[in-house]
Simulated scan of single mutants.
Amino acid sequence: MSDAGRQSLGDKVSAAVKPDSEKSTPEHIKDSVVGSVDNAAGHATTDNNKSILQQASDAVFGESK
């Protein structure tokens, strides 16, 4: 299983729980960049090679395809 380049489930939850209105501009930029990198890494990895946590994370947070 390879989760290289993927954002951890804990980090995704932390970013999702904090309201956008309470985030600074750098936090918005970081969330956008990290989300894009995570999404690209998710596309580059087949579901068979993802850990159970990453599969669940993609299902909950809606990995865009």
Rank of each mutant, 00 (worst) to 15 (best):
residue 7 Q to D: 03
residue 6 R to W: 06
residue 9 L to K: 09
residue 19 P to Y: 09
residue 18 K to D: 04
residue 17 V to L: 15
residue 64 S to L: 09
residue 49 N to E: 15
residue 15 A to W: 05
residue 62 G to Y: 06
residue 62 G to H: 08
residue 51 S to I: 07
residue 59 A to Y: 03
residue 52 I to H: 08
residue 44 A to W: 04
residue 47 D to G: 02
residue 5 G to T: 04
residue 31 D to H: 10
residue 59 A to I: 00
residue 50 K to G: 00
residue 16 A to W: 12
residue 10 G to P: 08
residue 53 L to G: 02
residue 2 S to D: 12
residue 35 G to V: 06
residue 47 D to Q: 10
residue 12 K to D: 02
residue 46 T to F: 01
residue 12 K to H: 09
residue 6 R to T: 01
residue 50 K to I: 00
residue 31 D to F: 03
residue 15 A to K: 14
residue 17 V to R: 11
residue 29 I to K: 06
residue 48 N to K: 14
residue 25 T to Y: 12
residue 18 K to P: 05
residue 28 H to Q: 13
residue 55 Q to P: 01
residue 10 G to R: 10
residue 37 V to H: 07
residue 23 K to L: 12
residue 13 V to W: 11
residue 35 G to H: 10
residue 39 N to R: 13
residue 55 Q to L: 11
residue 36 S to F: 10
residue 42 G to Q: 01
residue 13 V to S: 04
residue 63 E to Q: 13
residue 46 T to L: 07
residue 26 P to W: 06
residue 47 D to H: 05
residue 23 K to Y: 06
residue 53 L to Y: 05
residue 12 K to I: 00
residue 58 D to M: 02
residue 5 G to F: 07
residue 45 T to P: 05
residue 9 L to V: 08
residue 6 R to K: 12
residue 29 I to L: 12
residue 40 A to W: 10
residue 31 D to R: 13
residue 43 H to N: 15
residue 50 K to N: 00
residue 45 T to I: 09
residue 54 Q to K: 09
residue 13 V to P: 05
residue 40 A to K: 14
residue 19 P to S: 09
residue 43 H to A: 10
residue 27 E to D: 12
residue 23 K to T: 04
residue 21 S to C: 11
residue 41 A to H: 06
residue 1 M to E: 08
residue 13 V to F: 15
residue 17 V to S: 06
residue 61 F to L: 05
residue 34 V to T: 15
residue 2 S to H: 04
residue 49 N to D: 15
residue 22 E to S: 11
residue 39 N to D: 10
residue 24 S to W: 04
residue 59 A to M: 05
residue 28 H to K: 15
residue 19 P to A: 06
residue 4 A to R: 11
residue 27 E to C: 07
residue 65 K to R: 14
residue 9 L to E: 07
residue 9 L to C: 10
residue 1 M to G: 11
residue 60 V to M: 04
residue 20 D to H: 13
residue 30 K to I: 05
residue 25 T to M: 10
residue 3 D to R: 06
residue 6 R to N: 05
residue 11 D to I: 01
residue 27 E to H: 02
residue 42 G to T: 00
residue 48 N to W: 11
residue 32 S to W: 13
residue 31 D to Y: 07
residue 14 S to Q: 13
residue 19 P to F: 10
residue 50 K to A: 00
residue 45 T to D: 00
residue 17 V to N: 04
residue 29 I to D: 06
residue 18 K to T: 14
residue 48 N to E: 15
residue 53 L to D: 10
residue 50 K to F: 03
residue 54 Q to C: 00
residue 49 N to S: 14
residue 53 L to E: 11
residue 51 S to A: 09
residue 48 N to R: 14
residue 59 A to E: 03
residue 53 L to M: 14
residue 18 K to V: 14
residue 64 S to I: 09
residue 9 L to P: 01
residue 32 S to N: 09
residue 15 A to C: 10
residue 36 S to L: 08
residue 37 V to F: 13
residue 18 K to H: 05
residue 46 T to W: 04
residue 60 V to A: 13
residue 56 A to D: 01
residue 13 V to R: 08
residue 16 A to V: 01
residue 4 A to N: 08
residue 52 I to T: 15
residue 44 A to N: 15
residue 27 E to P: 06
residue 7 Q to E: 14
residue 58 D to K: 02
residue 56 A to N: 01
residue 28 H to R: 13
residue 56 A to G: 07
residue 18 K to A: 07
residue 28 H to P: 08
residue 27 E to G: 04
